[in-house]
Structures are given as C-alpha cells and as structure tokens.
Amino acid sequence: MKNFTIIIGIATMVFFSACTSLEKMVDNGNYDEAIVKLARKLSGKKNKKAKDLKMLEEAFQKVTAEDLAYAERLKTTGRASNWDEIFNIYQKIDDRQDLIMPFLPLVSKDGYRAKFNFANVNSLKNEAANNATAYHYNEAIRLIALGKKGDKRAARQAYDGLETLEQYTDQYKDSRSLKEEAQFLGTNRVLVKLYNNTFGFMPREVEEEIMSVNVKELNTFWTQYYTKSSLGYDFDYVARLDVDNIDISPEREYINRYIDEKEIKDGWQYALDEKGNVKKDSLGNDIKVDKYVKVVAQVIEINRQKSATASGRFGLFDAETKELIETRPFSVDAHFSDFASSMTGDRRAISDRTRGRIKNYPSPFPSDLLMTMDVAYELKELMKTEMRRFAI
C-alpha cells in the first residue's frame, strides 16, 4: 500500500509539472513550443480539459498577433532585403494554422468550445514572395556587374540569391541565364602545367602520360581544372608540376639457394610396446599409427629487380601576378620484381612460397622507357591527391 501511494504521488507530481511547464511556456512567450506540446497532448484525446483548450487559444492568439505585428514593422523599414524574412513569418503563421486545423472543433469534456481566429495570409505571402523575387533579381544584376570586374565572391553571392529566388518561382525574367552567368563568373579556373627539368631525360611519351590526368575528377562546383591553355579562358591559378629528377636503378639479379624440408605422412605402421610387441586395442585388434618421413628439396631462386624514382615539386601560382601561393615536394617510385625457382630432390618438401615461384626463368627486365612510364602513372595519381589539397 505504501509503494502504491508513492507511485500515485510521483504520477501526480509529473502531471502538475507538465501543466506548470506548459503554463510557463505561455507566460515566457514560448508560444510555438507550447502549441506543439498542447497539440500532441490533445491529439486523439476524448476527455479534453477546458484549461488546456484555453491555454492553446491564448498561445495561438498571442503568437499570431506578435508575428503579424513584427512583419508590419519589417515592412515599415523599407529595406528590400527584409522580404525573405517577412515571407517566412507569413509561412510560419500558415504552418501553425495547418497544425491546428485538423483538430477542429476542439470541445472540452464540459462543453467548452475553443475559438481560433485564423489569419488569411495568402495575399500577404504572395506580396512578400513577389517583392523578395524582385529584390533577389535586382541584387543579382548588381552583384554580377561586380563579378564581371573580377569579384568572384560577388558572383557567388548573386548565384546564391538566384537560388533563393527559385524558391518563390521557377523562373523570373532571365533569371536562369543570369544564374549560369553568375556561376561562370564565380568559378576559379586552374591551368595544370608540367615543367620538365630533367634535361631531356623525360621522353615525350612520359610527358603525355602525366598530362593525360583526368582533371574532371578534380572539378568542384566553384573550381574547374584544365590542361590546355588554348581554350580562351582567363585562368585564375596555375597548378605547376616541376619534375626535377627521374632516376632509373641498374638491373639487379640475385641468386638465392636454400633448402625446403618437412615431415610428411608416408603410410602407416604397427604401434609397438616397450618389448617390441604389437599393441592391441580394447577389442584385441592391432593398433596402427601414421608413419612420418622427412623429405628435402634443394631450391635455386633467381630474383630480378629494377626501380624508377621521380622527384620534384607541386606549386600553386596566381595566374595574373605569378606569385607562388603554395608549394610541396614529391617523390614517387615504381618497382619491378620477379622470381623464378628450380628445385631438385623431393617435390613434396617445397613450401607454398616456393611452389608459387617455380618456373624456368624470371620475366625479362623492363626497358628504361617502360619503367619511366610506370613512374609517370604513379605521379599522375599523386597529382590528383595533391591538387585536391590546394587551398583554392
């Protein structure tokens, strides 16, 4: 009985705490929060309390009046930039009314009927939308004019404004073409250039392999990369790749002799006791055990190795002033390695490693050109990683 009394007491405290919380929300001006909580509380409830309905009425009336008054104050400032906020206020009023509408009529268990004066904000929303659209369009024209003078930030702001305009209407005058122009003007264009400082050690094929990098993979919304300067663009940056050295190692061949050995099962034999007699199991049968023998193989392994290394610098320059903005060194490697092994002795002794290398001869050494092409491929992949790190 004592526990039951405690539970009832806790439930009562929670109930009064919830009521007090809602009343405090209304008293403190947190009307929308109170309206949402009250709507949830009243949803599907048959025995509604007049106190809750009156609280909902009060919150709804006060917040609607405040919103309408605030929208009017914003209008009186005469600032065209306020129209987005004014539209959002009317939209909020609309959303709030849509929240309550499905619950109507709201009648308490003792017959109290809640009354709500809904504001017709459709014409006000249309007015705000039209004025906001005109504002963003005119502002975009002003910002694009600055973009044409080289102000990329202004062009991007124009693009953002035209994006906002499209929230009100699919198209306004020539807003779509203006948006394309804003994006074009706001985009950074980067020319990727290769400088061969190896004194003729880099063949033409290698340069072509490096510059075949797929720069489209590097493109972002506001940054575009190019490998050709003949496209008629004014470039903002030059991403410069200086290859200073390409080193090819000598061809190296190593011979390694080693022995593989292991114990393997080779049939069976009878198990003997200490006296040399055949052991018996519990049924009197002879006991057999696996017989193991040691097998050995002699292995001769040939290993061929060759490598190439390219080193230099990645640099980002201002295309107009030629000023160096950022630079980073690089070094990339390409390796050739192949094995061939032959054996004598018992083939059962060889390891899995040896078995995978059994063949008469290793592959021939690649030419210096092929090694340089391999290192060029590695450099091309590194380029994409490094250029993504540039602070453009």
Rank of each mutant, 00 (worst) to 15 (best):
Y137I: 00
G150R: 05
L106Q: 04
A119T: 09
N126K: 14
D151N: 15
L104Q: 10
A128P: 13
A114D: 06
R113N: 08
K125A: 00
Y112F: 14
K148I: 01
N131Y: 04
A155T: 03
P102G: 09
A128T: 04
F118Y: 14
F103D: 11
A155P: 12
A134E: 15
M101D: 12
Y137G: 03
N126Y: 13
K152Y: 02
A128D: 10
Y112T: 02
T133F: 04
A119P: 07
I100L: 15
N138W: 09
A128M: 09
D110T: 11
A155Y: 06
A140Q: 12
P102M: 03
R156Q: 12
A114Q: 04
V121S: 02
I141G: 07
S108G: 11
L143G: 07
A134G: 07
L143T: 14
P102T: 04
L106Y: 08
A155N: 05
K149T: 05
R156C: 11
G147N: 05
A154C: 00
G111M: 01
N126G: 08
R153I: 13
G150E: 00
D110H: 06
N126C: 06
N131G: 00
A134F: 01
E139D: 13
D151P: 08
G111F: 05
G150I: 07
N131L: 12
A119N: 05
K115M: 11
A114I: 07
L124E: 10
F118V: 10
G147C: 00
Y135S: 01
